[in-house]
Design a protein around this nucleic acid. Structure first.
Length: 748
DNA sequence: GTTGCGCAGATTTTT
DNA sequence: TCTGCGCAAC
């Protein structure tokens, strides 16, 4: 196999197949290329059976990309090669070994929303007010426990002990686990801890997998949590061929349980581990890479890589100060228009923001310019009510212990089973230790035994019909009919379709359309699977929420910075780069560790850009109903001056702009002075000063030539007219402050 | 069951 | 300012 297309470190990463290896792969360093080559090398040169290789990643996106590239490059049959996500891998293992844990193999996977529904029910049952203890808090607690790898019955380590101190939350956790088990359901975290539990309780099962997987590879290693760390350690214990690939500087999901200790501690767990750093960047211009490196170098929690590139010097980064959020959006729209005029295609342009709320102004601007765009990860398709409803029907078919799903649909569409009847049924189910559906079946079987429930005739016939529908579809399933066939039956015979069709509103039509789309999703799934069935389909849509795209359409991409990880675009706009937004106010409250994560996030954003990076911020922004003056992000000051150009953008004349400014200042003066306004006031003054600065002859960022010191960049301006003073950074790094009227200055 | 009011809260969200 | 919710009233 020819490895000439790899650089020296990449080649090492491919060739060091045996023993533990940690690859620190910087942004744009050809990580996927290297990983694919490594697997290919194992298959073709080392003659390892694909069956013995396990490659796990965190996201479906990464798994898919790797699979596709392997399929293209490798001559060996890739069929039995496992390239999946942690969750999909664990789901597979759990289904195979379900009986060990008292599950059945058709268990349901609950997503975050469903977990929270269970939690809500528990809180209500315990009479705990949701304001006193929010379901979200409980969910985060449970998630935190599972991220650490804790499951019921495991001896607690120090990390877990801290959690167990809160007796009340821990109690709720236990009840939650019991409820999930009763429902034959597993949540996301439980997929991982379930396997840990399985491995610990049944060493012979663990051994089977340990022997099977001779080579284990982990991608996106910086995003793994403690539970996943534990899992891969166990899996690779026999052969010790564990290769992890990650970038500590791109760890941006600690709030989701990603544990940077996994990277920082790797060498203490594997003292014999080889460390390989991929430091050459193939993606971005020198200016971008060097600037980004400077920024990230301020972080303390890192192993330390020095990224470099052979690429061109490239353009300066543009930092653009806009008057307000509206102007910022106009600016981006206008710039995109210029790019298009230069022949750039829209798919090469992306706009990133710190939080979803900021997509709106940009969307407006793009609509105005009539540029097509796509908002990545807006409202999730599978979160829509009608989709969840139909999925719940399918879930009950597949898993009759899934009482959550049944509660959702027992009266959807309305069939006269109201809250009172439902309560009666639920109580009876608890009394008889049956799931809700099992109870309904019994009622249908022998109604006489349930006279004491005094169900109305309407309720009885509704139950009768629902149970029959579900049972009929269950039969279809055992006869291996296609999921789409079952879906259609459910949709029609439940009355769901009819009710929506009768709804003549725009919304109703949209819902029907969504249900059509669900149908195509099922069909598409059927085409891609060897033996499609409903269990698999339901698993796929909870574990992989990516909705297939229209493909090659030429449009601008809009997304959060988190969403941009792993992607690259020639032209990138980073908007809203203001203090309190990016870094977020929350991270500023929490402290330096959180700030470092924000810095990594900023680093991720910068390193997506290949040719041109434009960073914008607004002097004032309409936020939460009032105008906020946040000022530029501290991260902007961390970019050394030689890498950027600081511009000012306004709509209308400078004069008008300034007047506008004074006016908002006056407006404020007349407003009431609450305690918050202290801060507000200071920011205003700063902003006013800024505005003044931009009326100067030498605004911040402009290039000058000084008769004595030579070329330099204006860092700061204060005063106006006769009083104007400028601080200048000269090329040799010297800083000087001058009175403009005396200094021999010229614009460069 | 649906509608409407009042109130709190308002990062990120690979699975 | 906008949204999402829980709860009360039709």
């Amino acid at each position: 196999m020819n490895l000439d297309f790899l650089n020296e470190s990449q080649r090492q990463a491919v060739l060091m197949t045996d023993g533990p290896v940690m690859i620190l792969a910087g942004a744009g360093s050809g990580k996927t290329r290297t990983l694919v080559a490594r697997i290919q090398y194992l298959l073709e040169e080392k003659r390892v059976s694909p069956y013995q290789i396990l490659a796990v990643t965190f996201s479906n996106k990464a798994a898919r990309e790797m699979r596709e590239r392997l399929a293209v490059n490798t001559s060996v049959n890739v069929g039995t090669l496992q390239v999946t996500t942690f969750h999909a891998f664990c789901a597979k293992v759990l289904r195979m070994e379900a009986t060990y844990l008292g599950l059945s193999k058709n268990f349901t996977i609950y997503d975050d929303g469903e977990s929270q529904s269970i939690i809500k029910a528990i809180l209500t049952k315990r009479g705990i007010n949701q304001k006193e203890l929010s379901p979200y808090t409980v969910a985060a607690f449970i998630d935190g426990l599972k991220n650490l790898g804790y499951y019921m019955g495991l001896a607690r380590n120090a990390d877990v002990e801290k959690y167990a101190e809160d007796k009340r939350l821990f109690d709720i956790f236990m009840e939650y686990e019991a409820e999930l088990h009763r429902s034959n359901a597993v949540d996301f975290g439980g997929l991982i801890t379930g396997v840990l539990n399985l491995f610990r309780s049944y060493p012979e099962v663990l051994q089977k997998y340990q022997q099977k997987f001779k080579y284990v590879l982990v991608d996106e290693y910086q995003d793994t949590n403690r539970a996943q760390f534990d899992l891969i350690l166990q899996l690779s214990q026999t052969h010790r061929n564990l290769c992890v690939v990650g970038d500590e500087d791109q760890s941006i999901y600690s709030w989701r349980g990603a544990d940077i200790r996994n990277i920082l501690d790797y060498e203490s767990v594997f003292p014999e581990a080889k460390l390989i750093k991929l430091e050459q960047n193939y993606r971005s211009s020198k200016k971008i890479i060097e600037a980004a490196s400077e920024v990230i170098s301020r972080n303390l929690a890192r192993k330390g890589k020095q990224m470099w590139t052979d690429n061109d010097e490239g353009e300066e980064i543009r930092i653009v100060e806009c008057r307000d959020d509206k102007a910022e959006a106009d600016f981006v729209g206008q710039q995109i228009r210029h790019l298009v005029q230069e022949g750039v295609s829209l798919k090469d342009i992306a706009v990133f923001y710190r939080n979803n709320a900021h997509s709106r102004t940009i969307e407006d601007a793009l609509r105005k310019e009539k540029f097509p765009y796509r908002v990545v990860a807006g409202i999730k398709f599978y979160d829509r009510k009608e989709i969840k409803d139909m999925i719940s029907y399918m879930r009950v078919v597949v898993n009759k212990k899934d009482s959550l799903a049944l509660t959702r649909i027992i009266n959807t569409p309305a069939r006269g089973v109201g809250a009172t009847s439902l309560r009666k049924l639920e109580d009876e189910a608890v009394r008889l230790q049956l799931s809700l559906f099992e109870l309904l079946e019994k009622i249908v079987e022998s109604p006489a035994e349930f006279k004491h429930l005094s169900l109305s005739g309407k309720v009885q016939s509704a139950v009768y019909q629902l149970v029959h529908l579900i049972q009929e579809v269950q039969v279809l399933e055992t006869q291996n009919h296609s999921p789409s066939f079952s879906y259609e039956k459910l949709l029609n015979e439940s009355g769901y379709y009819e009710v929506l069709r009768a709804d003549k509103s725009y919304e109703g039509a949209a819902r029907l359309e969504n249900l059509e789309e669900l149908m195509s999703a099922i069909k598409q799934f059927e085409d891609s699977e060897n033996e499609p069935n409903m269990v698999k389909f339901l698993e796929t849509i909870t574990l992989d929420t990516t909705v297939s795209e229209d493909g090659s359409t030429d449009q601008v991409s809009l997304m959060t910075v988190h969403g941009s990880k792993g992607l690259e675009y020639p032209y990138v706009f980073l908007i809203g780069i203001e203090e309190n937004i990016f870094p977020s106010y929350k991270s500023l409250e929490v402290g330096p560790v959180a700030l470092e994560e924000e810095r990594r996030l900023f680093y991720v954003a910068m390193t997506r850009a290949m040719k041109q990076l434009t960073i914008t911020f607004a002097q004032s922004r309409l936020l939460w109903g009032s105008i906020k003056f946040n000022g530029p992000s501290q991260f902007l000051h961390e970019i050394p001056a030689q890498y950027y150009r600081w511009d000012f953008f306004q709509t209308g004349s400078k004069k008008a702009q300034f007047d506008n400014y004074s006016q908002s200042y006056d407006d404020w003066d007349q407003s009431n002075h609450s305690s918050d306004d202290q801060v507000f006031y200071k920011e205003k003054v700063y902003q006013t000063k800024k505005a003044v600065a931009n009326l100067s002859n030498y605004p911040s960022g402009s290039k000058i030539v000084h008769a004595l010191y030579g070329e330099g960049t204006v860092l700061d301006t204060e005063g106006l007219g006769q009083d104007e003073k400028v601080t200048i950074l000269f090329r040799d790094g010297v800083r000087k402050k001058f009175m403009v009227k005396f200094a021999p200055l010229q614009k460069a």
